[in-house]
């Protein structure tokens, strides 16, 4: 049975007005003709080719693509942790040359400093940049409160659950008041329930803070639920396949997962990421090793 779905490009007037407003805002992150080539023993590999996009102030951009399409390479280049071969990355018009505090990053593996308490973790960025302890402490407290972990400010990371660790990591990145928050599959290691909770938290934080987010994921629902726009990467080499404007109105909540706009967008992503041709290529050989005769399918 095929559902009758609207076209994913159809936008309600409110949504259209919102996109118009976003486009008016200044570009915080500009990526222009970004190309990344690796030297491997088997020759040169192009990981990303001519990737170009802009992210406006307070926009939420998710990047999605099959595994191996260069999502992680892209975000590591944005963070300055890897160099690019060609093209440019600009933050507020200034080219990126290395890691810096104006681009906060949240990693999938939490990367909290295990020897520091929650509060000291959040203070880390402020302290290395020369803020005095008293100011850093009061600012850190504020961010810890924002992610709802005030009770745990003196706990060590090993005492926290995965979701709590990731909230600390978000607070730690935000405490630096970066222009862009880069998130590399931050909820990938969490169970489905915590993950859903974290998405709600993140949307709430994003609403309360002046922050631009670039969020990598391989989860289609997550990509739609969070994003203003979705950047779909196509593998070998990684190129921009499409930049989708999500027609689901804000504020978002998991209840929208089954609305027509949401499903329409999801259908489009399915087409792009799992094209029908790819489903048939890896057919298993038809071997049966069962002795009981009845059908299980």
């Amino acid at each position: 049975m095929q559902l009758e779905l609207p076209d994913y490009r159809e936008q309600s007037p409110e949504v259209r007005a919102r996109f118009a407003k976003i486009a008016q805002r200044p570009v915080v992150l500009g990526v222009e003709g970004l190309t990344k080539r690796f030297q491997t023993p088997r020759g040169e590999v192009t990981a990303l080719e001519d990737v170009t996009f802009n992210v406006h102030r307070r926009e939420f951009l998710t990047v999605i693509g099959q595994s191996g399409c260069g999502k992680s390479t892209l975000i590591r280049i944005l963070a300055g942790l890897e160099t690019l071969t060609e093209g440019s990355v600009l933050v507020d018009g200034k080219p990126v040359t290395g890691p810096g505090p104006e681009r906060g990053m949240v990693f999938q593996g939490y990367t909290l400093f295990p020897w520091l308490t929650v509060k000291k973790n959040v203070m880390f960025g402020l302290r290395v940049r020369g803020t005095d302890t008293v100011t850093a402490e009061s600012e850190a407290r504020q961010w810890i409160e924002m992610v709802g972990l005030s009770k745990f400010e003196n706990s060590y990371p090993h005492e926290l659950s995965g979701g709590m660790k990731q909230r600390v990591a978000i607070a730690r990145a935000l405490a630096n008041q970066p222009r862009v928050l880069l998130m590399d599959e931050p909820f990938g290691a969490l169970d489905a329930q915590t993950r859903c909770q974290m998405q709600t938290y993140l949307l709430q934080i994003w609403r309360n803070v002046d922050i631009t987010i670039v969020f990598i994921t391989h989860d289609l629902d997550e990509a739609i639920l969070l994003a203003d726009r979705i950047l779909v990467l196509k593998p070998h080499p990684g190129r921009v396949e499409e930049l989708i404007e999500v027609p689901v109105p804000r504020p978002r909540d998991p209840g929208q997962l089954l609305t027509p706009e949401f499903l329409a967008t999801r259908k489009r992503l399915e087409e792009l990421i799992h094209p029908p041709s790819s489903a048939t290529t890896d057919k298993l050989p038809n071997l049966r090793l069962t002795t009981v005769g009845d059908e299980v399918e």
């Binding site: 963070a79 300055g80 942790l81 290395g98 890691p99 810096g100 505090p101 681009r103 906060g104 990053m105 990693f107 593996g109 990367t111 400093f113 295990p114 020897w115 520091l116 880390f124 960025g125 290395v128 940049r129 730690r172 990145a173 630096n176 880069l182």
Partner: peptide, 25 residues
């Protein structure tokens, strides 16, 4: 390594990494 990377994205400069991340880590 990712601890070093995280510290750098938080604004730590390479000379700070030794004392602030490597040694305590």
């Amino acid at each position: 390594r990712s601890l070093l990377e995280a510290a750098q994205t938080l604004g730590a400069k390479p000379p700070q990494l030794l004392g602030k991340v490597v040694v305590p880590g």
